[in-house]
Design a binder for these strands. Sequence first.
DNA 1: GCATGATCATGC
DNA 2: GCATGATCATGC
Length: 462
Amino acid sequence: MINQQLGYDPTSAESIWRYSAGILGHTLREFVSREYDSKTGKGGLGQMVEEIYFHIANNSRAEADFAKAGIELKCTPLKKGSKDEFQIKERLVCNMINYCEVVNEPFEESHFYTKCQLMLLLFYLHVNDANKLDLEFLISLLWRFPAKDIAIIRHDYETIISKIKAGKAHELSEGDTLYLGACRKGQKGDALREQPFNADIKAPRRAFSLKPAYMRIILDMVLKSGKNHLNMVQPELSELVSSRALKTKSFEQIVLDRFTPFYGKKYKVIANKFNINLSNQPKNTFAMLAHAIASKGKSSNVNHTEEFMKAGLLLKTIRVQANGRINESMAFENIDYNEVHECEDWFESRLYEIFSSRFLFVVFREQTEGQGDYVLDKTFFWTMSQDDLNTAEKYWTNIRDCVENNTISPEYFWKISDHRCFHVRPKARVANDTIEAPLGGQVHKYCYWFNNEYITNIVNNN
DNA sequence: GCATGATCATGC
DNA sequence: GCATGATCATGC
């Protein structure tokens, strides 16, 4: 029953969701009549929405914001891309990880699950340095995790818990898991937290969060629907593994098992098995084979399947020569100079998202020197270490300096000969393919690269 | 038409 | 031989 004072029924998720429609297209300032001191800080907006729009008293209790309806309210920012399209600005932070307590919480009883299984997501348009009262709300979505996602998230949760139980809370990384990430929280200078199974080393503060990739899929579904007020949405992406298969094995194990029958097999044999035509000698021959194996022949690019998209997982192939050398460095996306220009925080950068992703590396090894007789050698999931992510931050800072100084040119970027794990190099269809720089002028297209030396280390250590 | 995933080609 | 620049097949 609708509470006349509140304007909605605080015990009904449906009613709360219906009431939330009234804030769309509006700012909080339109709902405060008197002088109001705007709250600051990251959580300020959510607290003000509860207070001003939903008329409920602030609390930092661990249970869901609308306790009787079991809904957690989350405000999350969008930004606009270069084509004026809406984009996810950041991961969705769910709740802080208390290392000492979380190890005693089974998933179903965890703070994360009990609080976030049903969320009211309010997307607003982020504006730099704006007063939070003036931010416009764009989308309201009542979100309940699909059962299949819960299966993957439960496994993610358990992965994080076992790392803490192994005394490695300080080595947690977003790339350890698929949908639910243990993301960094707070500033660099913040005090470290104690961890229960390692008395010597304290760990940075971290929170359970939904990865940007996961949030991007949710947003894509909303935008495709053409509505801004929705009660659940479902993706139209093809799935790589079934919900049923996840009941007995983890996603990663299922994918790895698909490669098992092909170890030691010549690449031409694998191509025949999947009816892949290599007569044009495509440069992505080995990638085509790896994608076919991972998808049992159903997909030419598993990076576009539901699970890979939601997890931000990347399948990459590596060729090792018979003499043990890896000849080629590994290319990633073209550098989006506008994105770099507008991003002030390394942890919110596109490069951080790519480099802190989880990777699936598929290795082919040449049998006879110079013959190109590659066989499938090994397959493994991998994520970048904290040390290397620190190097990556310096790499990104250098790139950002080049963009801000308008010196987008190879003489200013890290080179492979600098031997610093990563470098910047051209990647374009043709050499004279150029694009406009954020600060003006035409510049060449460059992209992010792993040095071949760095890949050699990865392959040898896994 | 262009990004992606990757390898080829060349010059020092 | 390696670093760096250039380019190709594919698929959306």
